[in-house]
């Protein structure tokens, strides 16, 4: 793993603001060490980790992949990133029913039953009942599926 940058407090706050702007909720990333790898990927790791020691080791990965910064102040959350935010998100949340939920898990595009503060062509958190299933992109008539292939299940 090639760490591009360990984010300072201000840079972490900028990401928190980005999340607030996109999902209408406040989260505290300051309790983690936050760093960037290639392609603007954001990772979070336990605060006690000695990053200098880790640089000397052959490190394959560190902590949890949180999401990827995209153009126009958008962020594509990982499934786990979406789960961290999804329960408190007030914007860009697409609610789907169980039938669509099963299709979503299989990797198909789906249709939302309710859109909460969603912006066209932005990343939306997919919610089914109380579960956060991941993220997609809201297109004109459907939600584009962004579940990684390794996570999909064929029922």
């Amino acid at each position: 793993m090639q760490i591009k940058k360990i984010l300072n407090e201000k840079e972490i706050r900028d990401i928190e603001k980005l999340i607030e702007k996109n999902y209408g909720c406040k989260i505290n990333l300051g309790k983690y060490k936050v760093f960037k790898t290639g392609e603007e990927k954001i990772w979070i790791v336990e605060k006690g980790v000695d990053m200098e020691l880790c640089k000397k080791l052959r490190c394959y990965a560190m902590g949890m992949y949180f999401g990827k910064l995209k153009r126009n102040n958008k962020i594509k959350l990982s499934m786990e990133g979406a789960m961290m935010i999804g329960k408190i998100a007030k914007k860009n949340v697409a609610v789907i029913d169980e039938g669509e939920g099963m299709k979503f898990i299989e990797g198909e595009n789906v249709i939302a039953s309710k859109l909460i503060g969603c912006e066209q062509n932005n990343f939306v958190i997919i919610k089914m009942n109380e579960d956060i299933l991941g993220v997609g992109i809201l297109r004109e008539n459907f939600i584009e599926n962004l579940v990684p292939k390794a996570r999909r299940i064929n029922f």
Partner: peptide, 16 residues
């Protein structure tokens, strides 16, 4: 790495 991510673990450093 897949399992660590899927379980939502943040306190792990994977070494090779």
């Amino acid at each position: 790495a897949h399992n660590i991510q899927k379980c939502g673990v943040v306190n792990c450093i994977i070494l090779n």
